[in-house]
């Protein structure tokens, strides 16, 4: 399949089930809401080293937030429920509770409950106040600045982690420019996050390593500098590859996000140095979710 001169390889992204939740973080200003959101989703690129994958989903307008202030929606994914139950209160406690003027609310209902105030209330040392109104419980934790308000808990959802595609380009600048275009388009899709720095990962990995205890290592088949030494997946004109990884609340969300990203890259076309779109997988036997590039772009 060739679109605008870009080859869409007959490949697929292999993704895994993850459990995730959404939080709405608000503050007196949009700036501080975003600071809290960015901080609490920091160092959360990959479950392998961070215990969770998290990112900003979207900016939430005042009219939609639980307290009428500017807000940001974040998604957090972990490999299992217990993992999620551990990281969510921890991250809110360290990054949102501490962030000026912030408040933190449930961003989804249903599924297993993930504690917010239920776990954080102890910080208030007995001065915490719970209020149950409209069937929902909120907690108020007196802090030096005033009060930190948060919901009792949030819901959770069985989502998909590890959707991805690779951009094969003729130079480093062209690969990055294409990746940026993809990220911009993909951030408009609800229900997904791109957990890596700026949404882009330059160091895609393969499973396993020659070293004991390494679960993942550099994906030498796509490393342009190694093409003389190992088997390569790169055509001769490709000099740089960027990957975009996608976690989402559902298969469809990840598929839609993948499509939006590839479309943006394809729009740039061969003229802007994009040679091909590929995807990372493990042969199809490890992850239950397969995002077939050609089907998505059909």
């Amino acid at each position: 399949m060739i679109l605008n001169g870009v080859e869409i390889r007959d490949s697929f992204a292999e993704a895994f089930p993850m459990i995730g939740t959404r939080l709405i973080i608000t503050a007196d200003t949009a700036k501080w809401a975003m600071i809290a959101a960015k901080t609490m989703t920091g160092f959360a690129t990959s479950v392998i080293g961070c215990g969770c994958e998290a990112g900003v989903e979207r900016v939430v307008p005042e009219s939609e937030t639980p307290d009428g202030r500017p807000g940001v929606a974040v998604l957090i994914f972990a490999m299992d429920l217990n993992g999620l139950k551990a990281v969510v209160p921890n991250r809110i406690g360290q990054c949102v509770l501490t962030s000026p003027t912030s408040a933190c609310y449930a961003g989804m209902e249903g599924g297993d409950a993930i504690s917010i105030g239920k776990a954080l209330k102890y910080f208030a040392d007995g001065w915490q106040i719970s209020k149950m109104v409209g069937g929902k419980r909120i907690w108020r934790l007196p802090v030096m600045e005033g009060e930190f308000v948060c919901d009792h808990d949030t819901g959770s959802v069985s989502g998909v982690g590890g959707g991805n595609f690779l951009i094969l380009a003729t130079s480093r600048l062209e690969a990055l420019t294409a990746a940026e275009a993809a990220v911009e388009a993909m951030q408009k899709v609800e229900g997904c996050i791109l957990p890596f720095p700026g949404g882009v990962v330059r160091s895609g990995s393969k499973v396993g390593s020659k070293y004991k205890g390494m679960f993942a290592s550099t994906n030498n088949f796509y490393c342009p500098t190694l093409r003389a030494q190992t088997e390569t997946k790169l055509p001769p004109e490709v000099a740089s590859v960027q990957e975009i990884v996608i976690d989402g609340v559902s298969f469809d969300a990840v598929a839609a996000c993948t499509k939006a990203g590839i479309e943006a890259v394809v729009a740039l076309g061969r003229e802007k140095g994009v040679v091909a779109i590929d995807a990372g997988n493990y042969g199809g036997n490890l992850g239950p979710f397969h995002f077939k590039l050609r089907e998505i772009m059909a």
């Binding site: 639980p66 307290d67 009428g68 202030r69 408040a103 209020k131 109104v133 409209g134 929902k136 909120i138 108020r140 005033g146 009060e147 308000v149």
Partner: peptide, 13 residues
Amino acid sequence: HDLVMLRVLARRS
């Protein structure tokens, strides 16, 4: 005090 809680309650009740 300016209470965030009041904003929440007003939207829930």
